[in-house]
């Protein structure tokens, strides 16, 4: 029996994305994109007492990157900013129910955007992403 290419978690979030879109007047926004392959994730969030109170995503690229962006909105909600900053790729792979070797770059993208969200909030930066699906 061959291994499925996509985990059940990735299929679920790709097919039924959660919190897709941008928050109005967010406290912080973080954008990370891979200039070569084109995968892009934008997170917008509201922060309350040092933790993520609400978060939404916009993403473009492969199915795994769209799914991971959706998974992040569920997992980051309620997480402290310190927790975001400490997030590693293995955790994202775990949340995704496993990623095939050619999908691992998405875990890096996910960790990067979470770190950037924490850093941007600390520095008072709101990324204005260049994303547009023209």
């Amino acid at each position: 029996m061959t291994m499925p290419r996509f985990s059940a978690e990735v299929i679920d979030h790709f097919t039924n994305p959660r919190s897709c879109g941008r928050l109005d007047a967010p406290d912080v926004a973080a954008f990370v994109g891979n200039p070569v392959c084109g995968d892009q994730i934008l997170l917008t969030a509201r922060v309350c007492d040092g933790a993520v109170a609400e978060v939404a995503f916009e993403a473009f690229g492969c199915s795994a990157s769209l799914a991971v962006a959706s998974i992040l909105t569920e997992r980051l909600s309620g997480m402290s900013l310190a927790g975001l900053a400490a997030l590693d790729e293995d955790r994202i792979v775990d949340w995704s129910g496993g990623l095939a070797p050619d999908q691992r770059h998405v875990a890096t993208l996910g960790a990067d955007v979470a770190h950037r969200l924490a850093r941007n909030y600390r520095d008072g930066v709101i990324d204005d992403s260049p994303v547009s699906a023209g």
Binding site: R5, F6, I11, G33, G38, S63, S132, G134
Partner: peptide
């Protein structure tokens, strides 16, 4: 087809930077 049935994702990125992905 459902995503479970998808084998390949092929992409093209133009000057706008947003990839077009065909599954």
């Amino acid at each position: 087809a459902g995503l479970a049935e998808i084998e390949t994702e092929i992409r093209s990125t133009g000057t706008g930077g947003v990839p077009s992905v065909a599954r």
